[in-house]
Amino acid sequence: MASTMKAMVIRRTGGPDVFEEAELLIPEPKAGQVLVKIAATSVNPIDCKVRSGAVAILPPFPAVLHGDLSGTVVEVGQDVRKFKEGDEVYGLVGWTGGEGGALAEFAVCDEQLLAHAPRSLPLDEAAVLPVVGITAYQGLRRKIRLEKDRMLLVQGGSGGVGHIVVQMGKAFGAQVAAAASSDEKIAVVASAGADWTIRYDQETAAQYVERITGGKGFDVVFDTAGGANLPLSFEAARRGGDIVTIAARAIVDLSLMHSKGLNLHVVFSLLPILYGEGRAQMGQDLEAIARLVDDGLIRPIIYPRTFSLSSIAEAHRFLETESHYGKVLVHVQ
């Protein structure tokens, strides 16, 4: 194997044009780590925020970004028990701690942050699942225990997290409504299995709550937009219901939440990567998600336009237009 690899790095924060190609040494796995030859990665909103400097999460420069990956184990470090050379895996690389990111031909990964890739998906497509799958699973299984026949509303149902929440909600036996902003995106949430669809730009919360729940409200609202959208989720929930959000960085009036006795749950799936606690649970969640995929209960929806490692700037620029649906895939090999 060669000693160097191609990578896309940033040496400062800024717009998508800060990405540049670099030749880096292929890292060596330490104890508990494996070296993965990366097949693909995907773009998540957090990747764009890190690149732009909008959040205070940044590995040392020159920084290799992105956490999602799929690929093949080519070398194992000491004390690795879960994987062997040749295993196809998917999961996360702990890029925030200087372990390197997924925008490279190879990465060393903590074995706890990986699982065997779903057998029923092409290996490159598995790369779109880790962040969104873990976020959905933590929200519906770890934060709450979504029960059969509960009424679930997914705000932003055609997005990366949203379309997985729709499918996972159905897999867990819920009755699912999903909101989106265009006819194209409504078709996406319908294909994901939503029982009801909502054009949120054409219906008020009061109107769709009456139409779908008879005015009672939803048992669970999974809000992928957050921020200024949270009060709409409070309005859509039944008294005593649960709100799960992945975007709580906002100043929001909680009066309605208080008066309805709602429970607010925040999911920030990168915490184990940032602080090291809970990494084993992430691996367990990835294993559970792979089983759901192989059981035919989840299938990621990938936007038709895909990108290569060299065109990562275009991939970031495209994601920031918010015109996509599902997930944006980046082929590395």
Rank of each mutant, 00 (worst) to 15 (best):
L103G: 00
S120P: 04
S259G: 04
L292T: 09
W196D: 08
E235I: 07
S323D: 11
P45K: 00
A39E: 15
T4A: 10
T197H: 05
G227C: 02
V188P: 12
L297S: 14
V165K: 07
L274S: 03
P60Y: 06
N229Y: 15
E184Y: 09
H324P: 03
I144A: 02
P29W: 07
S120L: 13
L146D: 07
Y208I: 13
V330L: 01
E99V: 12
I164A: 10
L309E: 01
E75K: 15
D294L: 02
T197C: 07
S70A: 13
G214L: 08
A313R: 02
K148F: 07
K30I: 04
G15R: 00
V166Y: 01
E75N: 11
P60A: 14
L140F: 06
L274A: 01
Q138P: 01
A192K: 02
V108S: 10
A225W: 13
T135W: 10
L92D: 02
L264P: 08
Q138G: 05
V128I: 10
G276S: 05
G139D: 03
R239T: 15
Y303A: 05
V18R: 00
L121K: 03
Y275C: 13
S259W: 12
S259E: 13
Y325R: 00
L69E: 12
P272E: 11
G98R: 05
W95K: 06
E210I: 07
D79Q: 15
A248H: 10
Y200M: 06
F19W: 03
Q207M: 09
A236T: 11
L262I: 04
G14D: 05
C48T: 14
V332A: 00
I46K: 01
F307A: 02
E320I: 01
A225P: 11
D195S: 06
D223M: 02
Y90G: 07
L92I: 06
E287I: 07
L264H: 12
M8K: 00
I273K: 14
E20T: 11
R81H: 15
Q112K: 14
G276V: 08
E85I: 13
I26Y: 02
S310K: 15
G214V: 04
P60V: 08
R239Q: 09
V221D: 10
